[in-house]
Design a protein around this nucleic acid. Sequence first.
DNA 1: GTGGTCTAGACCACC
DNA 2: GTGGTCTAGACCACG
Lengths: 121, 121, 121, 121
Amino acid sequence: MIQIDYRDSRPIYEQIMNSFKKLIQAGVLVPGEKLPSVRTIAKENSINPNTIQKAINELENQGYIYSVAGKGSFVVEKIVNNPAKIEELKGKLMECSKELMFLGVSKEEIIGMINGGSDND
Amino acid sequence: MIQIDYRDSRPIYEQIMNSFKKLIQAGVLVPGEKLPSVRTIAKENSINPNTIQKAINELENQGYIYSVAGKGSFVVEKIVNNPAKIEELKGKLMECSKELMFLGVSKEEIIGMINGGSDND
Amino acid sequence: MIQIDYRDSRPIYEQIMNSFKKLIQAGVLVPGEKLPSVRTIAKENSINPNTIQKAINELENQGYIYSVAGKGSFVVEKIVNNPAKIEELKGKLMECSKELMFLGVSKEEIIGMINGGSDND
Amino acid sequence: MIQIDYRDSRPIYEQIMNSFKKLIQAGVLVPGEKLPSVRTIAKENSINPNTIQKAINELENQGYIYSVAGKGSFVVEKIVNNPAKIEELKGKLMECSKELMFLGVSKEEIIGMINGGSDND
DNA sequence: GTGGTCTAGACCACC
DNA sequence: GTGGTCTAGACCACG
């Protein structure tokens, strides 16, 4: 369910966080659905529960899930709008697109990628 | 010439590197042009020369400049194609675009940003 | 009669307790009035009776209600003065007001809120 | 510099966080000032560095300080406005004020407290 | 069994 | 030296 790359420079908790973000965005995890427990995720991936907990906390801070002590963590019904975050993402996207164009990728190809939405990870 | 933000969580050398990348991409530094010396950059920005050197080395590794011992560093004539980097950037771009769409930004708006993207930082 | 939000991080019994507090403060439950039985509240809200009992016990500890074995729980005639609780609340209130002022909310606005505060939940 | 009450139900990291918030709000820690290092705070208060780190992270998330790896943590120049947080605090304040009035504290006394701003902690 | 907190000790990149 | 991440194990309140 989750992909961890220990050679990746990004911290493990961030990789876990992104995995869940993608599962939510892709609709694999639907609103209201319960996530596996911290301990389950930890055991299945041989990662320390504290690291999982950190990822879960971050996901809650960012508004993707909500946690209820003693019950579990659940996908939120609707993502809360966060204008600041949208601006940040727009900035990142523009930076990538500029650098790609500088490296010879045409504007059309980039737009094609966004239009097609083919998974490129 | 270079913008350093000590509050930024990114390492100094990375900020320096990005500044030069942008200057090259924007055409302020043209192909073949000589970069200021490490010591000059260091003095002008009150930064440790080692930090500048690290940024210069990274820029060379990524194919933006080339260094000649005893002469200095110069902007490359043509950026070497770096398929791995292009793929990485494409991945990042798709991730941003997916998250933006998930947060309610329309595909059209994103494409419009890329089409009209003449803002430079 | 009672609002439970399972997404809320606060324990269920605390939410129940607060619901009753508000009903008493608002005068919906008048002094001497009998509260519904633990089992009734539990069934109507699909909550474990133990959880309801815990809320009831807390309300009694805090002096809002009194319980008579075999009869039920009743709203007290007059809230017993609880200096410790008053001091605690005063502390909390001052903390909120200070933080609000620090964040740029004017003293006048805060006082206006307290003066005009007829909104109930 | 920091007050920890191990009998307090609130987590230690939260108490630490609040201590620093108050020091910043009171002007003891001025904008731009460096906070003691994680390890220093940990040693001086006989608390595990990880617990301090959590408090520091939270303070950064809430916009009170910013951290630079390898340099330290610093008080931000100006607190970022956060409307959602202001609304939350207003709600808390109203709840306290209502409960105080219900317990017999007069509206005038509450307003007097806010006007006087005497430390009540 | 669940999330949440905490300790003790470790390693890393950065400056 | 600094902040940041991670592990291994523990205890707690809640349902």
